[in-house]
Every structure is written in structure tokens, then in C-alpha cells.
């Protein structure tokens, strides 16, 4: 009962935000600059939330998320530019192939733990990048020129679906299984939870949504190059999740919004841009060592004094 209330509440909120922003766009109040920032924000939220399910919920330290983004980006770009498929089909195709890649990588690597898993995922992301680098069909190092087809609507719908699916997954039986792995893998194993299975499921879902984000990214920025998806991109995504608070979905989303805005604003100060950006990160981590939201969700903040609210 409570869960479905949150579900509908979120949907209504999303609709209201969409209506307001769309109204402002059609009213000419938001020009391309702001639309572009909004789209970027949406892409970053999708990336952050899709990594959140792997790191924040399941507790698996993956630093190869940009690899799945690259798969989504390239597959969808091939679908639209080379095969002439409509964008929506391309996005889904990119996401599905990305999920398959996640499954493929997840099965062998998720038996690893901690640092070892991190290295394996990093290695995988690099392999993906090098493959695209050497395939002439997608332009190799020169990259692939992609027509701009996304609108704010695509990006926003993507975010809503990502958040809904991942939030519901977290509150489901499978989600609880994943959380138990995060809390104590040995105990979870002892309780009869198939840890590898749940880890692979979380990983695959994460890759699926990273694929959607990649597809929207590819169709917003005119060109995709293998260098775009290097390990620094993975770290950017990791920063959203850690800064927002490991284990908090709304935290990672808020951090993605926050850092996108900081980055966009700082473009005015080219000389000190990266310094200020880094200082912001350090300050946040100093004053909120568990991230902006800790492990709490924004919804749980409104349930003051109540005990046993869903603190996921």
C-alpha cells in the first residue's frame, strides 16, 4: 500500500516536472543552452542510478560503467546511422545489447570480490573501448558522426523509467537479496541466497540502463569517439554515486544534478574550472563523509520519528 503510494507519487511528480519544463521550452523560456544542460542532467542521472544498483545496492565495486555506456552509444548509433532504424528502436537495441554485454561480463567476473572485481570491470571497459577503436565500420579513432535526434522528452522519459524500475527492483524480493549481499555476502550465502545470481541480475539491469544513457548521449552530442568512454568517464559516474551517498538512489540522482550544474556553471572560468570542481568534491566529502544523502532516500526524510520506514 505504502509502496504503491510512493510509486504514484513519483509518477505524478515526474509528470508535473515534465509539464513545467516542456511548457517553458515551448514558451521559449528555455533556449538550447538550458535544454542541453537538462538533457545532460538526465543522462548523468541515468548513469548514476544505473551504477547505484551495482555499487549502492549490491555492493559490487564496478568501475567499468563507461564500457556499457559505450556499447549503448555505439549500437544505437549504428542502428540509426547505418541501418536507418527509428531512434526509439535504436535506444532499446543499444540497451538490450548493453545488458547482454553486462550478462556476459557479469557471469565470470562477479565471482570475484572487491578490488579484484574492480580491476576486472575496468579491464572490460577498456576492452570495449579498444574494440570500437579498431573497428573501421564505426569510424575507429576518428569516431562516428551521429545526427542529433534526442529531445528533452526522450531523456526525461528515460530517467523516469530508470528510476521507477530500479526503485521497484530495490524494494522487491530480488532487491532485498542484493542488499543482503551488500551487507554480508557470507551470511547471505549461508541463508541460502544465490549470491552470484543476484549479483548478475543487478549488474545486467545496471548495464541495460547505462546502455539507454549511452544511446541518448550518442544522439545528443553529434560525435562519439572511443576516447569519450575511457576510464575517467567511469570515474565520473562513480563520483556521482559516492558523492550522493552509497546506497541512496535519490542521493546519486541529486549528486548527478548537482555536479552537472557545477560543471556547466564553471565553464565560465576556464582557468580554475577543474580546481574548483575538485574543491567542491573535497568539501562535500569532508562535511558529508557518507555522501550527500548517506544511505537515506529523499522520501524517508519526510517520515520523521516513524520507526522502521523503508530505509533503503
Amino acid at each position: 500500500m505504502k509502496k504503491s503510494k510512493a510509486f504514484w507519487g513519483f509518477l505524478v511528480l515526474a509528470l508535473v516536472i515534465y509539464a513545467v519544463v516542456q511548457g517553458m521550452i515551448s514558451g521559449g523560456m528555455l533556449d538550447l543552452y538550458y535544454q542541453n544542460i537538462l538533457i545532460q542532467m538526465c543522462i548523468n542521472i541515468m548513469l548514476a542510478v544505473s551504477l547505484h544498483i551495482v555499487i549502492g545496492i549490491t555492493g559490487q565495486f564496478s568501475i567499468g560503467h563507461a564500457g556499457f555506456m559505450a556499447v549503448g552509444a555505439y549500437i544505437s548509433a549504428i542502428a540509426t546511422m547505418k541501418l536507418g532504424l527509428p531512434l526509439i528502436v535504436a535506444i532499446l537495441l543499444g540497451a538490450v545489447i548493453s545488458a547482454l554485454a553486462g550478462l556476459l561480463v557479469g557471469i565470470p567476473t562477479l565471482r570475484l570480490k572487491g578490488d579484484y572485481l574492480a580491476i576486472a570491470t575496468l579491464g572490460f571497459a577498456e576492452i570495449i573501448r579498444i574494440i570500437f577503436l579498431n573497428v573501421e565500420y564505426v569510424g575507429g579513432a576518428a569516431g562516428m558522426v551521429v545526427t542529433n535526434m534526442t529531445t528533452w522528452t526522450y531523456a526525461f522519459v528515460g530517467v523516469v523509467i530508470t528510476i521507477l524500475v530500479i526503485a521497484n527492483f530495490t524494494n522487491s524480493r530480488h532487491g532485498r537479496g542484493c542488499i543482503s549481499i551488500r551487507e554480508d555476502e557470507i551470511a547471505a550465502d549461508a541463508m541460502g541466497i544465490n549470491t552470484t545470481y543476484y549479483k548478475v541480475v543487478a549488474f545486467t539491469i545496471g548495464s541495460f540502463f547505462a546502455g539507454i544513457a549511452g544511446a541518448i548521449y550518442a544522439h545528443n552530442f553529434f560525435i562519439i569517439q572511443p576516447t569519450t568512454f575511457n576510464f575517467l568517464k567511469s570515474f565520473d559516474i562513480l563520483i556521482y554515486v559516492v558523492l550522493g551517498g552509497l546506497g541512496s538512489l535519490s542521493g546519486s540522482a541529486i549528486a548527478a544534478i548537482f555536479l552537472t550544474l557545477v560543471s556547466a556553471y564553471l565553464a565560465n572560468f576556464p582557468e580554475t574550472r577543474m580546481i574548483i570542481y575538485s574543491v567542491v568534491l573535497i568539501i562535500v566529502m569532508l562535511y558529508r563523509p557518507t555522501g550527500l544523502m548517506g544511505t537515506k532516500e529523499i522520501t524517508s526524510l519526510f517520515k520523521f520519528g516513524k520507526k522502521g520506514g523503508s530505509k533503503v
Binding site: Y33, N36, F222, I223, T228, A267, M274
Partner: peptide
């Protein structure tokens, strides 16, 4: 002057910013 961080997406952002 606008910095694009040597990234494609930032280059697009910077161009949009300069234009609009």
C-alpha cells in the same frame, strides 16, 4: 574563452553556450 576539457560533449556544450 571557454574550456571544453578536451571532451566532445563539453565542446558541444561550450559551443551552445557561446552561441546562445
Amino acid at each position: 574563452k571557454v574550456d571544453n576539457k578536451s571532451e566532445n560533449s563539453e565542446a558541444t556544450n561550450a559551443a551552445i553556450k557561446l552561441a546562445t
